[in-house]
């Protein structure tokens, strides 16, 4: 599992990478009430705003962590945004991306580095 400074987690799964937001992020956001996801099949570049998440407090953008193609999205969190708070690392995942360069994930933080990052 890798972590970005945008508080996203990346977990390799077969030849794809699953992306979600961290528990820390979900706690900071508060209750999530709205999620907008990209269409499966969308080609994205790193740092593109690919998804939107709104909590009771504010709206935030979810950035593409890597260049690649969004191959699957988690419609369950669109139907039930509360899943993002209940299970941010599991059922609350956002999308699966096929990275152009799967090794690009290595630049991101590992768990201990992320823990230091959020202090």
């Amino acid at each position: 599992m890798k972590y970005t400074e945008e508080h996203e987690w990346l977990r390799p799964e077969d030849d794809l990478i699953v992306v979600g937001i961290t528990e820390h992020a979900s706690e900071q956001l508060g209750d999530v009430v709205f999620v907008e996801l990209p269409d499966a099949g969308t080609t994205v570049s790193k740092d593109d705003e690919v998804a939107v998440i709104e909590s009771v407090k504010a709206a935030s953008d979810i950035l593409a962590p890597l260049d690649g193609e969004i191959v699957e999205v988690n419609d369950a969190i669109v139907e039930n945004p509360g899943l993002v708070n209940e299970d941010p690392l599991g059922d609350g995942w956002f999308f699966k991306i096929r990275a152009e360069d799967a090794t690009a994930i290595d630049e991101y933080m590992d768990e201990s580095e992320y823990k230091d990052f959020i202090g």
Binding site: G30, D31, V56
Partner: peptide, 9 residues
């Protein structure tokens, strides 16, 4: 602004 229960609950 909120307690541990959270805004929604």
């Amino acid at each position: 602004v909120q307690y541990p229960m959270g805004v929604l609950k």
